[in-house]
Amino acid sequence: MTPLLQVENIAKFYGARIGCTDVSFDLYPGEVMGIVGESGSGKSTLLNCLAGHLTPDRGAVRFDTRADGLRDTVTMSEPERRMLSRTDWAFVHQHARDGLRMNVSAGGNVGERLMAVNARHYGQIRDKAIDWLGRVEIGEDRIDDRPTAFSGGMQQRLQIARNLVTGPRLVFMDEPTGGLDVSVQARLLDLLRGLVREMNLSAIIVTHDLAVVRLLADRLMVMKDGHVIETGLTDQVLDDPQHAYTQLLVSSVLQV
């Protein structure tokens, strides 16, 4: 089986400082990969390199494109990469305002990706927006409200709807539950788990919250100081950590 994403020897440096280095892994369709580590471990740098927001200094990120199979997205032209990010890829930001247009209605936010790929029927766009708002538990009556009028949890759910509406084949998530109250986090996680299963999503989730990966991720990568120090099936890594740092992380001795 062809992997959906093949990451080979990715490295990114900030001057002499290591952002992340020597990262390689394959992601297969329908798989959810969790990347955990404390802040500064390089997990967000890695995610941004994978999603094309940062250019890595070394390495390849091959994506199984619909037309030509595996293509390196690092060396691909910017128009092609941008095309990917508005069709087959989705990116859920930690802060909903980074991923939403705050001065555009909820319906417009969900509809934008449809219109970007040439949906030109207002009624159908609106129906699809209503359907997706429902799936993320936002009432139809809020469709013409702007996200500024929404709570933090609702904003995050709207961001998820906006990202998933075009049925992306790969979703990047950067701390999707970060910055939310604990009770709100639980509801969002529940929702995400449902969507991941229902849509058979392939995703890469960066988080410092082990509860998030326990619930969502099939596999886990633990990062420290820019290096991957442990990988494995989620349950395996969490229940029987090998690396001393992972053991600390799991036993919650480390405040992350």
């Binding site: 209605s105 417009g108 219109m115 970007a116 207002y122 469709i143």
Partner: peptide, 12 residues
């Protein structure tokens, strides 16, 4: 896409 978002917002 953004251009059509504007038209969408008008209609809504």
């Amino acid at each position: 896409g953004l251009m059509h978002v504007k038209l969408y917002e008008d209609i809504s």
